[in-house]
Design a protein around this nucleic acid. Structure first.
Lengths: 118, 118
DNA sequence: TTGAAGTGCAATAAAACGGTTGCGTAACTG
DNA sequence: CAGTTACGCAACCGTTTTATTGCACTTCAA
């Protein structure tokens, strides 16, 4: 019987890296900050807040979309973009796992030091 | 009296983006995975696991170091690298905040729908 | 002291990124 | 229908990343 539950070790997947990559840009982080506040915004609306072109914003949204962080719905001639929390939560959990691994490693180190007696 | 505690909104800082940028690469994610398991490894050791040059690994470690995710200590002629959890925990928290904002936005939407009656 | 191990720094070079401009197309509006 | 709004696609360009190679330097060990 496979024990999938035991698999708490970090296994870096290509997708995970792409999520972090998408978040690793100030402009895209700003877009996420706007979208996670709840609305569904058109590209024109999202561009209005920035100092760049509509096409630049479009490209950033595509990067976010490929990472699964946002998605869009077509309404008339507009394309409304929304936040999509699933992948970001996965990324958050992966950071949590790394943090836990580190804590466990520290625990082992401390135990070894106590056993050895300095 | 300032109410710093109320400031739960996401404020994207340059550093935050640089942390995500550092994590947004498969090789660096792999390095983090190795380092967070607890040891202090030399560049030669870390290179042994990969298919690239020592210098390439060095550059990746520098990117991680600039983001505050790792640090090193010189021991003899070796440079031993270690995981540094502070910045990563900050990044994790920022993702948590975004997730919470999204949940709150969903809550408001639901409330508005109930009030409006469809 | 000579040699090998572990590393840093600089000069590349190819690829990817971030942004722009130009043009074409669907959809709303008078 | 004509004009405008909202947008996609493709070409392009400067900058940054990513990885390599070559050489110099420090440290350990025989």
């Amino acid at each position: 019987m496979p024990r999938a539950k035991d698999r708490t070790l970090l296994k870096p997947t290509p997708e995970l890296a792409s999520v972090f990559f998408a978040l690793g840009d100030r402009t895209r982080l700003q877009l996420i900050a706007v979208l996670c506040a709840g609305g569904a915004f058109s590209i024109a609306q999202l561009t209005a807040n920035t100092a760049m072109t509509r096409q630049a914003v479009t490209k950033h949204l595509q990067v976010l979309a490929e990472a699964g962080l946002v998605h869009h719905v077509k309404v008339g001639r507009e394309r409304l973009w929304q936040f999509e929390p699933v992948q970001m939560e996965a990324a958050r959990q992966s950071l949590e796992i790394i943090g836990r691994q580190w804590e466990q490693a520290l625990g082992r180190l401390k135990f070894a030091m106590e056993s050895d007696g300095d």
